[in-house]
Amino acid sequence: MHIPDGFLDLTVAAVCALASIAALAYAARRVDGELSDARAPLLGLVAVGIFAAQMLDWPIPGGTSAHFVGGAFAAILLGPHLGALCVATVVTVQALVFGDGGIVVLGANVFNMAIVEVYVGYAVYRALAGHNEVAAAFAAGWLGITAGALSAAVQLGLSSAFAYELGTVVLIMGVGHLVLGLIEGAITAVVYRAVVDARPDVLPASPLREVRA
């Protein structure tokens, strides 16, 4: 889902960059002072986990594949604001050091993966966690990555390189990630469950636990 340079019109890239800067500034202000020393290492682990997982491309035969993005995963484990900053760090390292995703379009890639996927994923998780937390994590990963892909598709579909074929791009990317997102959801749910079993105390208070309390 990493957009390379040349794919987006400059105006689209600029609007996305401004939106990302505003969203990350908001996230940093919400997180500032609320992060405990005990949870700071978790931020490092989640960021590295997402970086490493994104390197593992799923080798699905048939021409359409993807890799784990992890926006919803970060949001559930870290909370949405810290999750956004975490994924933005990963996306920036990928672009600057590895040329994965363009420089001019970095704001768009941050917007899709670190803002849209994170906050949509978290909203889905919050809405469903009261019924079943693992199912909520699955749905968050699934719909979060689909939302991020749709956001990218709209940006691309509004750009001249894609001949302004908005409908075509939205259809290909939306359906593609709706199907591939099932794997994202499954990984999100399985790893979430493993973390809950191993160290429930490192997680932010979940809606379910808040209700029970």
């Binding site: 040349g6 794919f7 594949s65 363009g102």
Partner: peptide
């Protein structure tokens, strides 16, 4: 397996593939 993401498939369908440029190889 010829790994290709939906983004690349969409680029191919709309003829955008050649528009990709590498400003920063890293």
């Amino acid at each position: 397996v010829g790994y290709a993401e939906p983004l690349e498939n969409a680029a191919e369908t709309t003829g955008a593939t050649d528009a990709a440029e590498t400003l920063n190889p890293g």
